[in-house]
Simulated assay, not measured.
Amino acid sequence: MTRSVPYQPLLLRILHGISGILVIAAIITGFLVYNTFDKRFGKLPIPKIDPIQDIHGTVGLFFLILLPAFAIYSFHAGEKRLLQPDSIPKLSQFGKPIWWVSLQRLANTLMLIASVLAVISGRMMKEEWLPIGELDHIWYYFHLIAWVIMVCCLAIHVLMSAKVGGAPLLLSMFSGKFRTEDSPRIWFISLRAWLSNFSSNFPAEINQLMQSNFSLRIIEVVVLVGIIVAFVLPVFFSAGE
């Protein structure tokens, strides 16, 4: 690859590509669900799709299954693309390159948080609520809030990527080329080596992680716990107010 085209790790491209498709599909089908049953904040003249709730739920389930891997990768290998200790202060430097980068990092982090809110609230909703006009359940409002945040963060993510890296950065996410050290054949070996090193130096590794970016580590815990909650909460509690 030429130097003018940035290189993106293959695993990032795969996880980013699949999760991106699922997020966009969830946003579109989520709007169609709202446009079919709610319409309180406006509507579009779109033909009704009878199984739209099932389609939206299926997309959401696939996204939930992928979310743990994407979140773990984002918080570690992709940490530089998320909130940094100086990201908030640098938002005051409007118009400068670091402002665009900081805004994108903030949007990426908010999208992970909103994703957790979306999957938890979606799992706790009942299918019969919207068709019978029960629109005032708290889980439905949480789901709407998560949808709005994800739409805004996705727009910022795409716009800032184009602003910061231009077409080469956007095209690099769709490249099929990868380096030898990035081959899928060594993923398992690399993962096993990382886990072995992490377990053998557990206290030091945890301490280093917490000191490197404490705020992001807190967000990581919240996101990962939230994902676990999304999987197990509906098993123990009936959806409701």
Results as ranks from 00 to 15, higher is better:
residue 1 M to T: 00
residue 4 S to N: 12
residue 8 Q to V: 13
residue 8 Q to C: 08
residue 12 L to W: 14
residue 18 I to P: 07
residue 25 A to E: 00
residue 26 A to L: 08
residue 29 T to W: 14
residue 31 F to I: 03
residue 34 Y to C: 01
residue 35 N to C: 07
residue 38 D to C: 14
residue 41 F to P: 05
residue 45 P to T: 01
residue 47 P to W: 07
residue 49 I to F: 14
residue 53 Q to I: 07
residue 53 Q to A: 06
residue 54 D to S: 02
residue 54 D to I: 05
residue 55 I to V: 13
residue 63 F to Q: 00
residue 71 A to P: 03
residue 73 Y to V: 00
residue 76 H to K: 11
residue 76 H to M: 14
residue 79 E to D: 05
residue 83 L to S: 08
residue 85 P to F: 06
residue 85 P to N: 03
residue 89 P to G: 04
residue 92 S to V: 10
residue 95 G to P: 11
residue 98 I to P: 13
residue 98 I to T: 04
residue 102 S to Q: 12
residue 103 L to M: 07
residue 110 L to A: 13
residue 114 A to V: 01
residue 115 S to R: 00
residue 116 V to K: 05
residue 124 M to V: 14
residue 126 K to N: 05
residue 126 K to I: 09
residue 128 E to T: 12
residue 137 H to E: 01
residue 138 I to G: 03
residue 141 Y to G: 12
residue 159 L to H: 14
residue 160 M to D: 10
residue 160 M to G: 08
residue 163 K to W: 10
residue 168 P to K: 03
residue 185 R to K: 12
residue 189 I to M: 12
residue 199 S to I: 04
residue 199 S to E: 09
residue 212 S to W: 11
residue 223 V to K: 07
residue 226 G to H: 09
residue 234 P to E: 15
residue 240 G to F: 09
residue 241 E to A: 09
